[in-house]
Design a protein around this nucleic acid. Structure first.
Lengths: 206, 206
DNA sequence: TAATTTGTTTTCTTTTTGTTCTCTTTTTCT
DNA sequence: AGAAAAAGAGAACAAAAAGAAAACAAATTA
């Protein structure tokens, strides 16, 4: 998995979105203008990082051809790149407090058009729902959910878990694990902070 | 593909857009006027580059015919669109016989560096392994597998399924579903054709 | 034939561009 | 708060690209 910094992601997104607007491969100076930068040398470092990551085609020697996007990133339909990967879900911190570890390419089919992020599941609390230890989950950032949805919930500001949510009212709500050996608990709404709702899941067998 | 310099691209675009405006093929001096250049020799270099790239028809000797445009548009890179999405797994046909329905971008973590394709799971045969009806699976194209791996297997040339493979020998092999209500079957190796091995899985909750 | 146009080559200068460096500022993490 | 990483500015350099101008030969035109 490719790890990009925030600026690198911004620049890559700009290149991807504007690839068709250039009559030919743009020069570093030209890109600087579009990106609001004053120094070629600074942009150069970012471009080299993207080339190193295989996201951008290298400069053609010293023929000053500039930068061209690679093939895989031109995919029209399922183009996907750059959801922040935040870490594991058992971190016990509010999502906003977690730093983006890296970015992860996620198919469109697994995310929504709202802000999303990726977590890696730690533990077996959702095993009966087909979500296993080590899986990645795509979470739409939200502070509310409907009954029956699977949510990332922060309990008493200390423990983050992935659970079904149910029986929400002004006095209580229920968090239900999908694991026979674990039991559901009822909380006061003030105890529970919803961090997002599950919209996608991925697993690697390698 | 030949990479054009900026000026070459500009000149090519001008020629393409204005080909119909010339009563006959323009001379270099005439083109210099239109392009705001003072030197034939400079333009000559650019034109020769375009001829070399096959984008412009060569000068017809010294009969002052000038430059003629070819019909050919600028060659575009052939784009790849991620992994081929072939369809559902219960299709009952060999994978090779299936045509690519579309392409799907898949995170690096879910694929290998070998040829892979994507299938959508139909049925509940792997439900106890956390693979549900409607999930997408990433399959590495292979005709053999190790015991314990999850494979796409074509049985008797008629039925494609996703199963664990086990107890492979020259006389038999076993295909084991991950579903309590379904039972494992033993086959002769000739009956079973392995189409690939599971390397990734994805699910959407939208 | 002489003059003119045109493609072609060559030499030279200027501009653009990739590349590397050092230094400062900003952001991020501990 | 302090350390580390990221981001940016700016200068300097070499190579490539671009252009100007002159010269020449072949073809066309007058």
């Amino acid at each position: 998995m490719t790890v990009l910094t925030r600026r690198q992601t911004e620049i890559y997104n700009y290149l991807r979105d504007n690839a068709d607007n250039f009559v030919c491969a743009p020069s570093l100076d030209e890109l600087c203008g579009h990106l609001g930068m004053a120094s070629r040398g600074s942009l150069y470092k970012h471009i080299m990082a993207l080339i190193n990551a295989g996201l951008v085609e290298p400069f053609t020697g010293n023929k000053q051809a500039g930068v061209r996007l690679t093939i895989q990133d031109q995919a029209e339909d399922e183009l996907a790149f750059g959801l922040p990967f935040i870490g594991t879900i058992a971190a016990g911190k509010p999502i906003e407090a977690l730093e983006t570890v890296s970015y992860m390419s996620v198919p469109d089919a697994l995310k929504t058009n709202k802000p999303c992020y990726v977590l890696q599941v730690k533990g077996e609390s959702m095993i009966d729902a087909g979500i296993y230890d080590g899986d990645w989950v795509v979470i739409e950032q939200r502070d509310h959910a409907r009954n029956g949805e699977i949510v990332v919930a922060l309990i008493d500001n200390s423990e983050a878990t992935l659970k079904f949510i149910d029986q929400q009212s002004s006095e209580k709500l229920m968090l239900v694990p999908a694991n026979e050996s674990m039991s559901a608990f009822t909380y006061h709404p003030e105890q529970v902070q919803i961090q997002g709702v599950l919209v996608g899941q991925m697993r690697s067998y390698r």
